[in-house]
Amino acid sequence: MELLLVVLIGALYASGVYLILRRSMVRLLLGIILLGNGTNILIFLLGTITKGKPPVMAADMSVFTDIYADPIPQALILTAIVISFGLTSFAIVLLKRVYALLGTDDLDTLNTPQEEDV
């Protein structure tokens, strides 16, 4: 199963990179989201994955008796997901403002030459 995830990680990173190399800002954002997902799965996979054993104790227990999934990567990913939500939502709104200002989401047009500086 790990190998399948490895392939998946590669695919996510590759598509993310491909999308951020496009001219459209929407694609740039989608690429960033995909890269974020790829990273999350990478952390998840490298922290060793376990099936069906959540890191939650049974109600009547006060210690784990069985093996359980590593909680640290999960906590890290949770933090990372939330942080990247903050960043992406800001970026999405930035896209909206850029579009409102320039009427396009073509990244190539985002150049004010030096001569127009104040």
Binding site: V6, I9, Y13, A14, Y18, L42
Partner: peptide
């Protein structure tokens, strides 16, 4: 470029595993 980046990441992940 993107494809090789994906492959590099996959290989790295396998190594780490």
């Amino acid at each position: 470029v993107a494809g090789s980046f994906g492959i590099i990441l996959s290989l790295t992940a396998i190594k780490v595993l």
